[in-house]
């Protein structure tokens, strides 16, 4: 890299130099706004997560990792566990359903080409509105789910006051809302597989399962990794349905990391704990995004 610099400078002609001003002008809005609204806040977050002070961020004093300890003690540990459980369930369900439906839509059966629309609708309509449907469906006593349960002779479940069912309810909502994205991504990936190879395999008598197991699945590995990363990031940042459906309750059973940041930062005004959790959320996302960059980098090398 160092040895390339002088050559690069020599290569820059007068014509290049004429364009410098324009180039800086073009990149300025994006770079400046990224600095002001992403990088500066991140630095503030890291700095303040090591300090204690009031909500205005003034009169700070250094406390080392105490905010992190406080955060973990004040329900933060539980929150990280809930976030992990939610994310794992969400990723598994949305990816399995996404792949399954993409395979069905890709099965070359007449009349199914236009069928993608129903799967993208939950993804693109406002989540607050659809979460409200969920709270109606899962309402105690008169909600449709409880009416079905009692109709089947089973016990009714109070989804709002029991930890396990509350978490299941928000996972189901997240899955319903998001799996369409994985349908689209897997379908796009399936369409890029070489058709002649697939057809040759069917002529050779490979059944549907064998074709999937030995040909499509291995060829989809890169796509699966990418979809895994995107879905994990989405799961880690779950917020809206928690806000609308459970407010993190009952007793923290559905409090995700982002809801913790919001609740401690804006409702309980404990910036220290919120900053510590925010920093942790950033670091976890960074590891996941790092994986994605590494994968994209490898693909660029190949190209």
């Amino acid at each position: 890299m160092v040895s390339r610099r002088p050559r690069a400078a020599a290569r820059r002609s007068r014509a290049d130099r004429r364009t410098w001003g324009l180039a800086y002008l073009f990149v300025a809005p994006t770079v400046l706004l990224t600095v002001v609204f992403s990088i500066v806040p991140l630095v503030m977050l890291g700095w303040r997560s090591l300090h204690k002070g009031n909500v205005f961020g003034t009169s700070l004093r250094f406390v080392g990792l105490r905010n992190y300890k406080d955060m973990l003690a004040e329900g933060g540990g539980r929150t990280l566990g809930v976030t992990a459980e939610y994310t794992v369930a969400f990723v598994l369900l949305t990816m399995l359903l996404g792949l399954g439906l993409a395979l069905l839509l890709n099965a070359r059966v007449p009349g199914t080409r236009r069928l993608r629309a129903p799967f993208i609708i939950p993804l693109v309509v406002p989540a607050v509105a659809t979460a409200l449907i969920w709270s109606n469906l899962f309402a105690p006593r008169f909600g449709l789910v409880n009416r079905l349960l009692s109709g089947l002779g089973l016990d009714e479940v109070d989804f709002m006051s029991r930890p396990g069912p509350a978490l299941a309810m928000v996972v189901l909502f997240g899955t319903w809302q998001f799996f369409g994205q994985n349908v689209i991504l897997y379908l796009a990936a399936l369409k890029t597989l070489p058709q002649d190879v697939m057809e040759a395999a069917s002529v050779d008598g490979a059944g549907g399962w064998q074709r999937f197991r030995h040909m499509q699945w291995p060829m989809l590995r890169r796509n699966t990794l990418l979809i895994l990363v995107v879905t994990t990031l989405t799961g880690l940042q779950t917020f809206t349905q928690i806000y609308v459906l459970t407010s993190g309750g009952p007793d923290g059973a559905t409090r995700t990391a982002l809801y913790y940041v919001y609740d401690d930062g804006f409702a309980k005004f404990d910036a220290g704990r919120a900053d510590a959790m925010g920093m942790l959320l950033f670091l976890i996302s960074l590891v996941v995004t790092g994986l994605q960059i590494a994968m994209l980098g490898r693909r660029d090398d190949r190209a």
Binding site: V27, T30, V31, T34, V35, V36, F37, S38, I39, V40, P41, L42, M44, L45, R48, F56, G57, L233, Q237, F239, L258, V261, Y262, G265, F266, A271, A274, D275, G278, M279, L281, F282, S285, L286, T289
Partner: peptide
């Protein structure tokens, strides 16, 4: 360097920094 800065937003999920952004 500027390209890295421009893309760094992708690495910093807005959700992690809501408290300092609100302060700004």
């Amino acid at each position: 360097l500027l390209f890295l800065l421009a893309l760094s937003g992708l690495m910093i999920p807005f959700s992690a920094i809501i408290v300092p952004v609100a302060q700004i």
